[in-house]
Design a binder for these strands. Structure first.
Lengths: 142, 142
DNA sequence: GTATATGCAAAGGGTTTGCACGGTT
DNA sequence: AACCGTGCAAACCCTTTGCATATAC
């Protein structure tokens, strides 16, 4: 898969640098990671990489559609690979855990919004806040 | 209504200061305003008010449930009064306009998420990105 | 060899905090 | 009169940017 990524980068006129492949690998392994988390993961094996590089690399990887980000909660954006089908992000305000569901389940909703406002909603871009089963049960506060 | 707000503040042990009433009024008039926008509005009549006060006041007003905020797009949170029924926010990535719909239309979706994950989704807290009718038609880029 | 990426450090926006003064109760 | 709330300034986090060096092509 890393070979495929090199391919994609080249096709878009980008160079395949170690940092770019490291970030891509980290995103793939972590699923839903912030830039800081990605850097921390990379530092376990490659301590030299810089945070600003992670930001710049993520921009490139989004441009070539290997990665997307979603705004979840109030903190940093979280990045994830665009390998599988589009999905929604549910972030628990109690424990911070992020769960996913295929984006298709929101289709009736998206359809209704389009009918009523003419608005084309991208439900994958923003995470949805709430409480996971466990935290809802234990009434934890955020 | 400002008298009612004074009442609510007092009930929660907060003082009814001019700044708090100014912020509440601004939020009511502006609908969907960022802290900066709220401050700008207030400065038209009361130039002395400080931005950090706006932040602190918004925190208080949220605590007593006179105001809520939603994260829309990548910028600052936007605040709005909790007078009407809960609603969803749709932000156009083309023109930046924010439209609303009653939150009830998302109930089937919320229900389905609860069934499949046990997750209690708060769909009002995060704005939904997309394209409004006009911008979707003209294919504008963000 | 050349243009692009990186590391570093500094700047930038938005938000929070410490402190002394001022205002509400 | 007591205490809470404000203004101001500085600190803070996250993200972006300028520049010289390093590196993929």
């Amino acid at each position: 898969m890393t070979a495929a990524a090199v391919q994609v980068l080249h096709e878009h006129g980008y160079r395949a640098t170690p940092q770019r492949l490291l970030v891509l690998a980290a995103v793939g392994e972590l699923r839903h990671a912030t830039p800081e988390q990605i850097l921390a993961h990379i530092h376990q094996t490659s301590p030299g990489v810089n945070l600003s590089t992670v930001y710049r690399v993520l921009e490139v990887l989004e441009d070539v559609d290997l990665v997307t980000h979603a705004h979840i909660g109030s903190g940093s954006a979280t990045y994830h690979a665009t390998d599988g089908p589009a999905h929604l992000h549910f972030r628990c305000g109690g424990c911070g855990r992020v769960q996913s569901l295929p984006a298709i389940i929101a289709e009736p909703f998206v359809q209704q919004v389009r009918e009523r406002l003419g608005f084309h909603a991208d439900v994958t871009h923003a995470g949805i806040d709430g409480r996971c089963r466990e935290c809802a049960a234990t009434q934890e506060q955020p």
